[in-house]
Design a protein around this nucleic acid. Structure first.
Length: 676
DNA sequence: TGCAATATCATTTTT
DNA sequence: TGATATTGCA
């Protein structure tokens, strides 16, 4: 193991004796590098590769870590288990969840499934006469579940209305999930915890399996995840936790910074290493980031030293409108690419997924290669959701949420009234909804015509399920779609041919992914495992990480990554800091940390942009600059205001705006500035 | 019952 | 602005 390229602190962390170890690593201080090298060092010390477990939060981080590990330590590293918390939980559940009453092959409910289920369960409930916001109920349910393994009765009147409602809905929700043989994302951690607590032999087995744990981004663990780690570590307590309290950006998901700040209290005798040298960003970028984060009270003060003292100043650019912002960024990107910067070294970061649209359009207009990372937009598309729901119904007869979604898609004369009857019947007879469909003929009060249509639908499902036993699942899926006339339906429903084509392409993407999975996994591939993969890793369509493309993504998605040039856009009040949800006060400290994470992604160049006005609900609304801009230092920051010189003419966006901007971009020097 | 036209209404972040 | 709930008509 070559440790010569590590600095003394990094080397301390890498070679620390086994046992509890906390690495507090400032942004860009070589955090991942330390984890990788520590694994390499452990292997060199004779640890067996398959006894090492490295846990991360995102699949992307896991894949990245695995790749770097293989490069450092060679093929033996393939045996090291690198996984996300949720994938690990799913693995534990796969073996033993039947002990808690779930079927051997359980399904994972995704956000859409949760939403649909909660909508159904809480239809009759209301707050102040207003219908419930199902998304807030889901959020509150998740909050309640993650508050602790044992739900603690909390004093009445505490928390907002939705927390109270969640307590009411939670038992129904949980029962419904179990009845459908499904778990949600939170359960992937909570249920394994329950297993560990209730079945010592299960815990013992996993403890035997892994003797060493390494956890990245520890500041983002929530209480159940922390308990999971602690239980798994057992008496050996061989846990290496790596993280940075300044980068805690998931407190809305229950992340407890205390898990990292009080680590030594849970693991007495912890050795602590602080990594404070930043090798990533040039000094002006680091100074700006430091200025934004240092305002937060009660943080553990850190000195991040800049190891790259020289560099371009941070640029702040004000544009007249959001189109102009997008056009200007596209031009800036084009310019860098022209200078030889690789596309994958450039990123456009924003606070919310919804902000990506104008940039996608301006990039397309300039023919720039880009990729919208995450976004999950693909699986939000109606047709994609429909197709996936069909497959879920085939895979899991008790999946009522999906069944209700597709029973009348495309319209086949099974309307609300019919379904209402069938649901009632199922309820009163103690049948599953699926079963009540199968016996539609015998259901009281159902029109004969309706019963016949229902019958032919359940025949269709039964037939497809039967074929699934013998034929490749991709083939069955295709003939299912052709049988229900999906293509024709889509063509007829779309406004124009282009839209229809795009929608068909999406569906084709699902089928292609299914078939790819099948040929990769061979005979053991089945629908349920494909569907679980789908929910655990929504980005699995592309096998190879997109090279040669500019990344467009949220600040959250950018955590842990770095780029030569970063455009952080929309630095306006309401976006960054974000204006919270419906009157709920935003967590300003967290928004600040989010900005900090964004700033520190940049190695050479950081460009902050904002628009003076933005189309909001169809109206043009003036925008206030982000308060974070006020905290920027006077030195090493350069402001470029393009609003006064380029007033946006009224009416629809005009090509002249763009042309004028382009001209200005050239004459103002754009990015051609001397070093600071 | 189904579907089209009309009213309403919200707007984070992710596994 | 664009997506979804609701109404009203066939």
């Amino acid at each position: 193991m070559d440790l010569s390229r590590l600095n003394p602190e990094q080397r301390d962390a890498v070679t620390a004796p086994r046992g509890p170890l906390l690495v507090l690593a400032g942004a860009g201080s070589g955090k991942t590098r330390v984890i990788i090298h520590r694994i390499g060092w452990l292997l060199a010390q004779g640890a067996s590769a398959d006894s090492i477990l490295a846990v991360t939060f995102t699949n992307k981080a896991a894949a990245e870590m695995k790749g770097r590990l293989l490069r450092l330590a060679g093929p033996v590293a393939a045996q090291v288990w690198v996984s996300t918390f949720h994938a690990l939980g799913a693995e534990v559940a796969r073996h033993d969840l039947f002990r808690l009453g779930w079927p051997k092959r359980f399904a994972v409910a995704d956000a859409g499934d949760q939403l649909a289920l909660v909508r159904r369960l809480s239809r009759s409930l209301s707050v102040d006469g207003r219908a419930l916001d199902a998304r807030r109920v889901v959020a509150a349910i998740s909050r309640a579940k993650n508050a602790g393994v044992v739900p603690e009765p909390s004093p009445e009147g505490q928390g907002d209305d939705y927390d109270v409602i969640a307590r009411e809905v939670l038992p129904l929700y949980q029962r419904a999930l179990r009845a459908q043989g499904a778990v949600d994302f939170d359960d992937l951690i909570l249920l394994p915890l329950q297993l560990f607590n209730a079945y010592p032999q299960v815990l013992a087995r996993w403890r035997r399996r892994f003797s060493t744990l390494l956890v990245d981004e520890f500041q983002d663990t929530n209480r159940p995840q922390f308990d999971f780690v602690r239980l798994l570590a057992g008496k050996r307590r061989d846990v290496c936790a790596v993280g940075d309290d300044d980068q805690c950006i998931y407190s809305w998901r229950g992340a407890e910074v205390r898990n990292i700040l009080d680590f030594h209290r849970s693991f007495p005798g912890t050795q602590e290493v602080v990594l404070g040298r930043n090798y990533r960003s040039v000094a002006p970028v680091l100074a700006a980031a430091g200025a934004v984060i240092s305002v937060i009270p009660n943080r553990r003060p850190k000195l991040l030293s800049a190891e790259r003292p020289h560099g371009l100043p941070v640029q702040v650019v004000v544009l007249p409108s959001e189109e102009d912002e997008a056009a200007w960024v596209a031009l800036g990107v084009e310019k860098r690419l022209g200078e030889g910067v690789a596309p994958e070294e450039v990123a456009v970061l924003y606070r919310t997924n919804g902000q990506s649209r104008p940039f996608e359009e301006s990039f397309r207009a300039r023919s720039l290669p880009f990729e919208v990372v995450g976004g999950s937009e693909f699986f939000q598309q109606r047709d994609v959701k429909d197709v996936v729901a069909y497959l879920k119904v085939l895979a899991n007869p008790s999946d009522e949420v999906s069944l209700l979604r597709i029973v009348n898609v495309p319209a086949r004369g099974i309307g609300d009234a019919t379904m209402e009857r069938l649901l009632q019947h199922a309820q009163s007879q103690g049948l599953t909804v699926q079963a009540s469909l199968d016996v539609a003929g015998a259901v009281e009060g159902l029109a004969p015509g309706a019963a016949m249509r229902v019958h032919s639908f359940s025949q269709l499902v039964a037939r497809m399920r039967e074929r699934l036993r013998r034929e490749p699942m991709g083939q069955v899926a295709r003939s299912l779609l052709s049988e229900i006339g999906f293509a024709e339906e889509t063509r007829a429903g779309a406004k124009d041919a282009g839209v229809a084509q795009a929608r068909m392409r999406s569906v084709e993407g699902v089928l292609a992914s299914l078939e790819a999975y099948q040929s990769r996994e061979g005979p053991k591939a089945d629908l349920i495992s494909w569907l679980n993969r789908l929910s655990l890793d929504a980005r699995q369509e592309e096998e190879s990480p997109e090279r040669g493309r500019v990344a467009l993504m949220t600040l959250h998605a950018a955590k842990g990554l770095e780029f030569k040039v970063v455009f952080l856009v929309g630095l306006e009040e309401g976006f960054l800091p974000h204006s919270g949800m419906q009157g709920q006060p935003p967590n300003l400290d967290e928004e600040r940390r989010l900005a900090y994470v964004g700033f520190t992604r940049a190695r050479d160049e950081l460009i902050l942009t904002r628009a003076a006005t933005r189309m909001r609900r169809g109206r043009e609304v003036p925008r206030t600059p982000s308060r974070f801009l006020l905290d920027l230092p006077g030195v090493g920051v350069e402001t470029l205001d393009l609003t006064a010189a380029a007033p946006t003419p009224p009416g629809p966006a005009q090509p002249t705006v763009f042309a004028r901007l382009k001209e200005q971009f050239r004459s103002s020097g754009g990015a051609e500035r001397g070093s600071a």
